[in-house]
């Protein structure tokens, strides 16, 4: 972690619609994301996490406030492609992330459009294979397959393979493990941690699972109804929650977690 700031948001808001029917999805939020840091945005469904993530991605524009990327307004580079070369994303719903009319592989290959110098076709094939292997998918397994022939978890891995190809500076991961079981989730998290270490990536992790956020992140932001209600180092937030929302969130964690921990020290904790 360095002290350089990747993102700086000053009082940004995003309002949809006008007048009486308007919805304030993100409400006057100020925060910063340091280089090579993993931050988590945690909050209930509909609290504005995805909208905030899309603003960082330059897919949504704040209706007010200022959003800086690397110290300059996010729109400073005229061509948004420049932004997307540096900031990439894994979206929330893997079922709707791919075009049903093209094979998965051809859609992975279309990521190479962002490259300023496009590799040769042979190299593209090779790098796609590598990316698939990196996320634990055998290239043969998905050869010629269309999105609807894969399970949700496999599609989420495909989205991560795409990140492996693009190697951005910042990854915005919107619920990247919502479709996988706990064991695979842990291995995907390991993969993200590895990306952070090896490629010095900054990761914005969006989730509703506070346990997951607690485990992976260097700082934790709790959102509620568009506002940031709690923030800080994970241990601080867990031990000394300042807002009622965080307290409620911690209270609603299924008892089984505590019961299971109480039953004995997990073997791996010794490491």
């Amino acid at each position: 972690m360095t002290d350089a700031l990747k993102f700086q948001a000053k009082n940004i808001s995003r309002v949809f619609g006008h007048g009486k029917k308007s919805v304030t999805a993100v409400d006057n939020v100020t925060f910063e994301i340091r280089d090579r840091e993993i931050i988590s945005l945690v909050g209930q469904s509909g609290c504005g996490k995805t909208v905030l993530a899309k603003m960082l991605l330059r897919l949504e524009t704040p209706t007010s406030g200022e959003l800086l990327f690397n110290g300059k307004p996010i729109t400073a580079t005229g061509d948004p492609r420049n932004h997307w070369r540096q900031v990439q994303a894994v979206f929330q719903d893997p079922f709707s992330c791919f075009n049903q009319f093209f094979t998965i592989r051809s859609q992975l290959k279309s990521s190479f459009r962002l490259f300023e110098t496009k590799p040769s076709p042979g190299e593209i094939e090779e790098r796609v294979d590598q990316a698939l292997l990196a996320v634990n998918i055998k290239p043969k397994e998905v050869e010629g397959k269309y999105p609807f022939e894969l399970s949700g978890g496999q599609m989420q891995r495909m989205l991560l393979a795409r990140i492996f190809i693009l190697k951005p500076q910042v990854l915005i991961a919107d619920e990247p493990t919502s479709m996988v079981d706990a064991c695979s989730r842990a291995s995907i998290l390991d993969y993200l941690l590895k990306l952070k270490e090896e490629l010095s990536m900054t990761i914005v992790f969006v989730t509703h699972d506070i346990g997951l956020a607690y485990y992976i992140s260097d700082s934790l932001y709790i959102m509620h109804k568009g506002k940031m209600v709690d923030r800080g180092a994970p241990d601080d937030v867990i031990k000394h929650p300042t807002s009622d929302v965080t307290k409620q969130l911690l209270e609603d964690i299924p008892d089984v977690h505590r019961q299971w921990i109480a039953r004995g020290t997990p073997v791996h904790a010794a490491e």
Binding site: R81, W84, F91, S110, L114
Partner: peptide, 8 residues
Amino acid sequence: ALARINGF
């Protein structure tokens, strides 16, 4: 959205 950030 994915197509957009792919530069389409």
